[in-house]
Amino acid sequence: MALDDEPRLGCGRSIDRIWTTIDQPLNAHEQTCRQCQAARAQLKRLNEATQALREADLHDEALTPRSGVKTAIMDVARAEIRRSKRILLASNGNGTTEISEQALSSVIRAAAAEVPGIHARRCHIEISSATSDSSVDDPPSGQSGVIGPHLVIGLRSAVAPDINIPRTVQLLRQRIITAIPAGIGISAGTINITVEDLYDV
């Protein structure tokens, strides 16, 4: 399509080239070409106007959305989030207690936040079916030992470029093994940690 050809001045000079060299001294052609000089002067003025507008818009209080916009966005998000998966923690004649995958993940992420050099990302939790039957039975009364479903936790993470990855992952695993019984009241089960990315520090 002709429209996408590189736009040029009458003298054949690429406009893009004039723009990208606007802060450099004039070359031999530009020193004598009036078309180039005129275009350059105009673009220079545009460049300054562009920077001024960018700065002015960035700091213009009037150029921000009203707070109601965020409220409306978050209302929709909140209303639609409840579809997340539920995990049965305990069940007896008095009723059931379940936990959302979301709530479980937040305990895992809070634990990860205490380990420097690693950021918790997506967290996926499954129940191992082999042992899930035991969670439906009434626990013996008075027993305070940790019980519940056998969790299989898949946690993805990003790490800082300069850390010892095996040691950091091991530290994170230990933190999660402690945090789940403390925060939720069941055993941590199987924890699979994947390092998928490096983050910039």
Binding site: M74, A77, I81, Q102, H119, A120, R121, R122, C123, R156
Partner: peptide, 19 residues
């Protein structure tokens, strides 16, 4: 916390990350 990690958490339905 890097933006990639915040996006990943929002993907899991973490409202504060999305906020």
């Amino acid at each position: 916390l890097d933006e990639g990690s915040i996006v990943a958490r929002a993907q899991d339905g973490d409202l504060r990350a999305f906020e």
